[in-house]
Amino acid sequence: MEIILSAAIGILATSGIWLLLRPRSFQVIIGLCLLSYAVNLFIFSMGRLAPGRPPIMPKGGFVDPSNYADPLPQALVLTAIVISFATTALFLVVLIASRGMTGTDHVDGKERSQ
């Protein structure tokens, strides 16, 4: 299980980083999304991987924390998901505006000079 998940994180990160280094703004935006998946999964996996034991408690009574998934990384990732949506939106707007002003979708606002 762990090896699959870490391989998955690795592949998402690789694709993300590769796209991040590309010249077209749309590539970069997709790269950022992929990278944010990787990072979210990475942070999430720092807690216990506890299939089928969500951090939802019975009402009252004594609880043994080790019977549940770790809620803290989950809380961190939850806000991260929403914020990464916001940054994607912001970047998209910068992309559109830069395209409108410079006439190209190259990240530097001009085509690579030969």
Binding site: E2, L5, I9, G10, I11, A13, T14, A38, L49
Partner: peptide, 16 residues
């Protein structure tokens, strides 16, 4: 990218 990605994968595995 491959170096970065595999690095992250290794760290993730070690921590998990």
């Amino acid at each position: 990218a491959v170096i970065g990605g595999s690095g992250i994968a290794v760290i993730a595995y070690a921590l998990m």
